[in-house]
Amino acid sequence: MKLTIPEEELMYEGTVDCQGCGAGLAMRYALKALGKRTFVVIPACCWSIIAGPFPYSSLQVPLYHTAFETAAVVSSGIKAALEIKGIDATVMAWAGDGGTFDIGIQSLSGAAERNEDIIYVCYDNEAYMNTGIQRSSATPYKAWTTTTPRKYPKARPKKNIDEIMVAHEIPYVATASVAYPEDFIRKLQKAKNIKGTKFIHVLAPCPTGWRSLPEHTIKLARLAVQTCIFPIYEVEDGKYKINIKPKNPKPVEEYLKLQGRFRHLTEEDIKEIQEATNRKWKKLLKKEEFF
């Protein structure tokens, strides 16, 4: 059988992520896509642990661990140094949703506005997992976390980080899912050849925080796309293209019911989520049509 993704492995086996961790998988694909000439910058997140404690590293490329709010700007610094020294390589910031949507958004916005030549990947598991499942602004509407108890689940929708990044008018913004590795890898490879700030947002299910079964990780990552909860699209120089268009979107319930973090949802809630999802999907279709 011919593989549809690069064969080379740049991540070691035996990392300490939980069984079925989407984030672990995402990195494996990312390094396959970008190859050996890649510098990785990781702020505080689950990946600071997955990358291994002293004296180990689970990556076969240079890796810099940095403070939680600084992934984009430390990457900018590294890129500047490489440029001045005439070293041609990719710098990839690899941050969680907390490090991207919340505490890191200031330095991310700064880097994007300056159009720093970096790839910024946000692996999104929709909460602060490394500290034990607290809500982030990427946590979906009505989800349970330890700081949004079932009685008062998250009251606001997920922040639309992709549109925020599009608004910075950077050359490339894309979403991806670990259930569609070819798409994710193609996007990274495309990003590698674009100059300026590239932002890739990959949905990475987390069995521990989503209260789901490890063996459901890929299924959930796929269902998120097939229910249009997490659309897969890219925006290149302002031009929208939806890469995966489910012909008959599945009901959101199929996605929600596999996750303990949504266990408390009422029929009303599910209806509300379905409607919001439809609305957003329609809006995206229009954007593709007009831009």
Binding site: D102, Q134, T146, T147, P149
Partner: peptide, 28 residues
């Protein structure tokens, strides 16, 4: 880490009404 339990229990107190406080879950 290792402060999270402080915040988690306080969110529960606020949710259950045991503590009448405004809890702002800030971004940094």
């Amino acid at each position: 880490t290792p402060q999270t339990q402080v915040v988690e229990l306080l969110s529960e107190f606020c949710a259950s009404g045991e503590l009448k406080a405004k809890f702002i879950k800030v971004e940094s």
